[in-house]
Structure formats: structure tokens, C-alpha cells
């Protein structure tokens, strides 16, 4: 099967010592949850996927996205959307400019503005274009992050503790929103979390990592 996100014999080494091994396929619209306490290298796995592995780490294996090997592509050509625990909205840009940041070039100015408005309205943020992101609530920021990521038309979605910063009620709401949108676009989702509630809500397979030694399922 070539559709979806495939981690083919992926192994991350830190200073030559194996840290994580993953061999898994996430079909379109599914969520694979990677769980484990902090410090086991969950985020390092995502850094390998986004092409931003820190010095001292090495990644082996292949990343296959819809049948295409993207392992050797530079970070900006992989089209893997990522959401972090922090919203990481660019503080020098307005909400609208943030949302438009990842839009592919082309189309008229009005056309692009309309796509941004529509996407913001879709998450309940109509007329928010001119706002300063620093003035938004936590939930609003998370939704702008989601919109910004979706507008860049990613082919898979990575979640790095994406809901950990939100309080319980908001957390369920944003989580539902993200999973909904991912399913609607048939995006494979790889979620890294330490929270069992996230894993239950995702409904997909769970990959448990342990702290003291690399494990594989």
C-alpha cells in the first residue's frame, strides 16, 4: 500500500547509540499515537520527520509519504505539517498574515484573502485577520495555528504534544477540531503525547515507548 505515511525501519541514534526504533504505516485519515514519558526522544522522532534533527543525532531508515521517499528532501519540501504544544504564531505578523504564510504562491490577492477568511471562519474566527496574535486566547491561538498549517496543504500531520498546553475542556475541543479536519482531508496523523486521554481520543493504534531502553513493537 503506497498511500499514507510510512516509517520504514526508522531508527534514531544519539551519538551512535540507538534511541528509538519505529516501523509503522499510518493510512490516510488514521492517527498513530506514540506515547511515553518525556525524555525518551519522542520529539526527536518528529524532528527526524521534519528534517530538523539536532547535531549529535542521526536518523536511519526511510520516510515514505504517499509512496514517495522524502527522507533526503530538505525540510521545506517535505510538506509535513506540524503543530507544537506552543502555538508558535509569528509575533511580528497579524492573524491573517500568519494564516497566509504557508499558502502556495499564485492566485489573485483577493482570492488569497478570501481563502484565508474562509479558513478562519471555518474555525470560528471570522474577522480576525487584522488581530495581533498576542491578544488572542489560548484556544484562539491554537485554532489559528491549525488554520495556518492546513492552508499550506500538508500531506501528513505531525502533532508534538499539541494539546498539552490547553486546559481540559479546551483540550477536547481543539483535539476534536484537529482530528476532524485531518480525517476530512484524509491526512495521516502521527501524534506524540504523554497523555492517555489524547491516545483514547485518537482511536488509532498506540505505540508505547519506554524510558530506559529503545523498544520496538
Amino acid at each position: 500500500m503506497s498511500e499514507g505515511l510510512r516509517l520504514d525501519g526508522v531508527c534514531i541514534l544519539k551519538d551512535g547509540v540507538p534511541l528509538i526504533e519505529v516501523d509503522a504505516t499510518v493510512p490516510p485519515g488514521d492517527v498513530l499515537t506514540v506515547m511515553g514519558p518525556s525524555g525518551v526522544g519522542k520529539s526527536t522522532l518528529l524532528a527526524f520527520l521534519t528534517g530538523t534533527l539536532p547535531r549529535g543525532f542521526a536518523g536511519m531508515g526511510r520516510i515514505i509519504l504517499n509512496g514517495e521517499d522524502v527522507t533526503d528532501r530538505p525540510a521545506h519540501q517535505r510538506r509535513l505539517g506540524i503543530l507544537f504544544q506552543d502555538d508558535l504564531l509569528f509575533p511580528h505578523l497579524s492573524v491573517g498574515e500568519n494564516a497566509a504564510f504557508g499558502l502556495a504562491p499564485g492566485g489573485s490577492r483577493a482570492d488569497r484573502a478570501a481563502r484565508v477568511s474562509e479558513a478562519l471562519a471555518d474555525v470560528g474566527l471570522s474577522e480576525f485577520e487584522a488581530r495581533d496574535p498576542a491578544t488572542l486566547s489560548g484556544g484562539q491561538k491554537a485554532r489559528v495555528s491549525l488554520v495556518r498549517m492546513l492552508l499550506s496543504e500538508p500531506r501528513a500531520l505531525l502533532l508534538d504534544e499539541a494539546f498539552s498546553g490547553l486546559d481540559a475542556a479546551l483540550r477536547a475541543q481543539i483535539r476534536g477540531l484537529v482530528f476532524d479536519r485531518a480525517r476530512a482531508r484524509a491526512l495521516p496523523v502521527l501524534m506524540v503525547t504523554h497523555d492517555a486521554e489524547d491516545a483514547r481520543a485518537a482511536g488509532g493504534p498506540v505505540f508505547e515507548m519506554e524510558a530506559w531502553r529503545p523498544s520496538a513493537s
Partner: peptide, 18 residues
Amino acid sequence: EPRFATVAAALGTAPGGV
């Protein structure tokens, strides 16, 4: 914060653009 660069790259921005 280097994750700003990760986010921008994931949005399709080349290193120079970041």
C-alpha cells in the same frame, strides 16, 4: 526559539525565506 524555523519550513518556506 528554533521551532519557529521548523514551523516555517513545514509551511514550505526555504531556509532563506525563514
